[in-house]
Amino acid sequence: MPSRRAPVVFPSRLELWLITLIGLVPAGLYFWYGAHNQLGADPVNVFERWLGLWGVRFLVVTLAIAPLRDLGVINLVRYRRTFGLLVFWYAVMHVATYGVLDQHLDLRAVFGEVTTKPFLMVGLAAFVLLCPLAATSNRWSIRTLGRLWGTLHRGVYVVAALAGVHFLMAFKTYTVTSVGYAAALFVLGAAGVVRRVRHNGRRRMSAANEPMRRPKTTG
């Protein structure tokens, strides 16, 4: 599998900024629409759902990067942080819309709902987990945290599962959209877990085959 890996594509800084900027256009556009009464009868809900949907879209992109690399299609790992951060910003705007525009900062209502309704508890769990991932999405954290960083960022698979469940629960019935995105999230998340398990297995095997390169610390 690794032999089929596509070569790394290195983005320029400008490119990454442009991706972020373009990635935020759906939010900006809909905010403008909403502020100018162009989002129909229930603008707050439309905006709230739109932000959730785009968060999931960028999450799918983020999760698809590794399999695309492994299948030899294209290697965009250097773009992954940018897409991951877009997921985070959409989640922030989604949650802020819920708290401010929808619940009008009624903190008691927000707290009451978010801690008792499984649908929102799952969303909250996903959001809470996204925060440390976003906070450590920088070179300094990668350097300082070492292996812990990798372990932490495997949390993205849990975010995928939670977001998928939250999405499915956001509708009265199963819909093509919610089932489609949730399936994408579950499959990509599961693929990530499988990749990790395999990778760790290989590491252990290769470690066993090359005892010389492994400094023995015990016995």
């Binding site: 009464n37 989002l39 229930d42 603008p43 649908f119």
Partner: peptide, 17 residues
Amino acid sequence: PRWSQGSERVIGSSGFF
């Protein structure tokens, strides 16, 4: 089970605010 029924969004084409 998924949300509170204590309050409601009033529908009306008046944008966010």
